[in-house]
């Protein structure tokens, strides 16, 4: 009994001693800042920064002053923390988010053949260009969902991938995974997007998809800011820098292919501030504001689409958004 205790205890003690000595002798010197930086990075090792994982990127950030912040997934707090740790300011790029540019659920589209095989879009794409009749449409097998390192995507009941905006970091893994380039990164602040990239003529498209962009140019002609454009043969595209988030395009699109993250809030006139100049009534694209000169104007809530053009133009700051 005593012998056994001594034996195991002895082996343990010797091992502990050796390990203790080794941990001092063979200690690898690591910059403590590097570890602090690594703690702030997302830790998904997605490789979007161009380095071999988060640890490698943290090492580069700490050791090389020229390295800029290349991680698209780090949030604002993390960025600030890293800037503090390293003692140099790191600029953040515009935060991006994944956006699915197809609205053609299986119910609205036609397939050319019945695909039986691995649940993988790239494999399906190889077989005669994929089962979906539309060559620009989502195959719906979820390769993008599989590729997402942040668990930010899921296949919805409509058979299309959906992005969880809280989790999406804009790393672009899904963009690479999609064989049809349907997913794109758009600015996180963007409110509207066209969910179609088809280059087929409207006539062709109507044979296999009920919801694609038919290039009617109504949105282009309606947009007061020239932010949406239908170039020859392409689906409509929105210039997010010009977009003022008025939402007119959504309301006029005949196929409903333009999506909005959140509806624009309607507006009301603050009677005390209004000088009755009538500029708002002139700029309102839907004639929702009416009134007499020199008297407070009134917004017809049922007509207002929340485009906020009146807010922009009002010289007296007399118009405000209603809470949603």
């Amino acid at each position: 009994m005593m012998g056994a205790m001594l034996m195991v205890g002895g082996i343990g003690l010797v091992a502990a001693l050796i390990l203790g000595i080794a941990s001092v002798t063979f200690a690898v010197k690591m910059d403590p800042r590097e570890k602090a930086v690594l703690d702030q990075l997302p830790g998904a090792n997605c490789g979007a920064c161009g380095f071999a994982g988060c640890a490698a990127f943290a090492h580069e950030l700490t050791t090389t002053p020229e390295v800029e912040m290349a991680c698209p997934a780090v949030n604002k707090d993390g960025l600030k923390a890293i800037s503090d740790i390293l003692g140099r300011s790191l600029g953040a790029g515009d935060a991006m988010i994944a956006f699915v540019r197809c609205k053609g659920s299986p119910a609205d589209t036609i397939t050319r053949y019945s695909y039986v095989g691995p649940e993988d879009c790239r494999t399906a794409q190889i077989i005669a260009g994929g089962p979906k009749a539309c060559q620009y449409g989502c195959l719906g097998l979820g390769s993008c969902v599989e590729a997402c390192p942040f668990d930010a995507m899921h296949m919805g009941e409509d058979g299309l991938p959906h992005v969880n905006e809280d989790k999406c970091t804009g790393c672009g893994k899904c963009v690479d995974a999609c064989p049809r380039e349907i997913i794109a990164l758009i600015s996180r602040s963007a409110n509207f997007g066209v969910r179609c990239i088809s280059q087929d003529s409207p006539k062709e498209m109507r044979q296999y998809c009920k919801v694609g962009c038919i290039k009617c140019r109504i949105c282009e002609n309606t947009c007061p800011f020239e932010a949406i454009e239908v170039t020859q043969g392409n689906a409509a595209s929105i210039d997010q820098e010009k977009c003022q988030k008025c939402g007119l395009c959504v309301s006029v699109c005949p196929t409903g292919v333009i999506s909005s993250k959140q509806p624009s809030g309607k507006v009301q006139v603050i009677a005390e501030k209004c000088k009755g100049c009538g500029i708002c009534a002139q700029v309102c694209p839907v004639d929702a504001i009416s009134g007499k000169p020199k008297e407070p104007y009134v917004v017809d809530i049922s007509k207002c689409i929340g485009c906020a053009m009146c807010i922009e133009k009002c010289p007296a700051d007399a118009i405000e958004r209603l809470a949603r």
Binding site: A15, A16, I18, L19, A22, S23, F26, V28
Partner: peptide
């Protein structure tokens, strides 16, 4: 403990 030791040495 051997694995621990080896890991340290290799690192």
């Amino acid at each position: 403990s051997l694995v621990q030791l080896v890991e340290m040495i290799i690192q």
